[in-house]
Design a protein around this nucleic acid. Structure first.
Length: 105
DNA sequence: AACCTGACGACGC
DNA sequence: GGCGTCGCCAGGT
């Protein structure tokens, strides 16, 4: 699954998530025709560079929580939380309401 | 080939 | 809602 083709497709979909909305890993996976590959979406986003223009912060897990774990400069749990809040997405007790903020297509 | 490790998810209690 | 389990699947060893 190292297909550059697939990776670009995934990043392409993530780019479509509008500001102020979020999507889940599983949702993205399904959108690119790879259901059951939610984990691969995370793997792909993890490899992004800090200065990437891909809105990786708008991707969260199905429980409405942030799942990033690394501590890279520019890409970490707290950075994601801050970016979401700036966009008007409420993060209450580490949880985001998918009901309100999920990007429905 | 075998086994371990995840930025995951559905379900049951 | 919180938690534990189990199922998934690409990658790395």
């Amino acid at each position: 699954m190292q297909d550059e083709e697939v990776i670009q497709q995934i990043l392409g979909v993530v780019m479509l998530i509008p500001k102020g909305k979020v999507a889940t890993y599983g949702q993205i996976a399904a959108m690119v025709g790879l259901p059951k590959h939610a984990r691969f979406i995370g793997y792909t986003l993890k490899r992004l560079s800090p200065q990437s223009d891909v809105p990786w912060h708008r991707v969260i897990n199905a429980q409405g929580r942030i799942s990033i774990v690394g501590e890279r400069e520019g890409i970490n749990r707290n950075e994601q939380r801050e970016r979401l809040i700036v966009e008007g997405i409420d993060v209450i007790n580490g949880k985001i309401s998918l009901k309100k903020f999920r990007w429905c297509y």
